[in-house]
Every structure is written in C-alpha cells, then in structure tokens.
Design a binder for these strands. Structure first.
Length: 271
DNA sequence: AGTGCGGCCTGTCCGC
DNA sequence: TGCGGACAGGCCGCAC
C-alpha cells in the first residue's frame, strides 16, 4: 500500500487531530511489528504534547518534548482516527490515546510497519539519516538523478525505487513515472541521458502530486484516517493493467518481474 | 561499492 | 470444499 502519496494523505488527515494534543496513553495489543514497539512508551511519553507532525519519505514523525515517535506503515499499515472506546478489529495493533478523547489507531495485517521512539534528532536516526531527497522538495531534479546514476547498472526502475536515491517512489509510482517519461523500466540507470532524466524527475513529481490530490491509490487495503480509500487508481496508466490496451497507443501493457517486483510498461511508448 | 536475494508477516487468489 | 503455492504497495541485512 503506502507509498509517498498514501503516507502524505494519512499525515494530512491525522495532523489536525494530533497536533498540539497531549498524549494520554498508548495501548499496545501487539508489539511484534517490523521492530518491537518500545516497552517504555507510556512511562516516557504520557503527558507529552505533540508539538509537530511531519513526513520524511514514507516515515511519519511526531515530535514531543521527550523525543520523537517514528511511524512507518510498511506494506499494509494504516492509521485512523477513532473514538478511544471503539472496539478494536483484528490487526489493530496499537492505539495512541489523546487527552481530547480521540485515538490514533494503527492497523497492519502484515506487521511490516513500525512505531519507534527516539530521543535524538529524528533526522539523525539510522532509518532516516541516509535517505535521498524528497521528490517534491528542493534538491531533486534531472541533474541529480543523472549524476547519481553514472556507472550504475541496475535497471532504472530499481534505481528510482531505492530510498537512498530518492524517497517515496514505490512499485506503483515507479512504473507510472517511467511510463509518463517514455523510459523502458529495464534500461540501465547509468545509460540514460540528462534530458531523459529531466523528463523522469518531472514525471515523478507530477504523478506523486496528482495522486496526493486524489487521496492516494487504493489497490486493496489502503484507507485514509477516516477509513476511506484513495481515488488515484482510476488514473493509473500501466500499473495492474497487464494485457489491457495502452491508454496512449492501444498496444497491450506488458508485465514482467524486475528485481522481484511486478513491473508494468508499454513496449511501444517506452524505450 | 554495487547488486541480488532472503526474510519478516498475513491475506487472498488461483490451479489442482 | 480443501490445500499448496505464488503473490501483494517496503525495506533491512547479508553474502558475493
């Protein structure tokens, strides 16, 4: 599920409910996530106010006076705002209960997500410290991708999905961006021209921004903080469309595995 | 250093 | 209907 647009959608949805609120308690029903949920959350953070909430890549960070919470939604995670007395469903692994009576509830069937707590600068945390630039921020453009890719032989799709190159581009948006840029996904990253990387950087920005505007992409289980799906799926050009006609030229969309991930592209439009 | 692969989990779907 | 296997939006850690 969650790539950058879905995490951004989630952040925008939960921010009004958590920002400036005091944490009453955490209720941990299942601490076995990607990394174990730290046992000292209640002792360390109850009574603390959430002073800031922001996103870095696919991580959501909540800053308090006693350190920062770092959330990740993994493959199947979601965060919803619900009254604290709502009966938890299966896979509702933990709650962050606020003094307002609202509850931020983490749901994640596959448990690839995480909730961490760090007392250092969260940007220095080992998971965040070496991340590549934000695709919607400064420092990301065709020149950057071109420079970073010289002598790299991986397929360009794998290259742009590497969070140490650029954050937030997961399997869906990698295929979609390459389609919009007219670049074949298996092409070696190091052998693509500056001009084509400029198109690609623009395509990545455009597709992510367009998806955020639609509330993200829901393939099966992504829901926003209110439990509603995103509507970008109907805008997808190639992802999950194997055998269907390319929306640009009519040629059937192809699908193959690249770096163990399903990869969709139009063999006529992408070179 | 760059690359490819295994592993973490559960749910769903497909073929037998 | 049941069962095994493949696969699913992420990403770390390891071996080569």
């Amino acid at each position: 599920m969650p790539e950058l647009p879905e995490v951004e959608t989630t952040l925008r949805g939960i921010t009004p409910h958590v920002l400036g609120q005091v944490i009453r308690a955490f209720e941990i029903r299942e601490p076995r996530l990607r990394w174990p949920v730290p046992p000292g959350l209640n002792a360390g953070l109850a009574g603390q106010r959430v002073d800031a909430a922001w996103r870095r890549g696919k991580y959501i960070v909540m800053q308090t006076g006693a350190g920062a919470l770092i959330w990740h939604l993994g493959m199947s995670g979601s965060l919803r705002i619900t009254p604290a007395d709502t009966v938890p469903r299966k896979h509702d692994h933990l709650d962050m209960i606020l003094d307002s009576g609202a509850c931020l509830r983490f749901h994640d069937p596959r448990r690839f997500g995480c909730l961490l707590w760090t007392q250092e600068d969260p940007l220095r945390h080992e998971l965040l410290a070496r991340l590549g630039p934000e695709p919607l921020g400064e420092g990301f453009d065709g020149g950057y991708l071109h420079a970073r890719s010289r002598s790299r032989e991986v397929p360009v799709k794998s290259f742009i999905m590497d969070s140490h190159v650029v954050v937030g581009v997961g399997n869906i948006y990698a295929s979609e961006s390459l389609f919009r840029a007219g670049i074949a996904p298996q092409r070696s990253a190091g052998r693509i021209s500056l001009a084509r990387y400029e198109r690609l950087a623009g395509a990545i920005r455009d597709v992510l921004a367009a998806s955020i505007a639609q509330g993200g992409t829901t393939l099966r289980d992504f829901v926003n903080e209110q439990g509603n799906p995103g509507y970008f799926r109907q805008t997808l050009q190639v992802y999950d469309r194997e055998g269907q006609p390319c929306r640009q030229c009519g040629e059937p969309v192809k699908c193959a595995r690249l770096g163990q991930r399903s990869t969709y592209w139009c063999p006529a439009c992408q070179r």
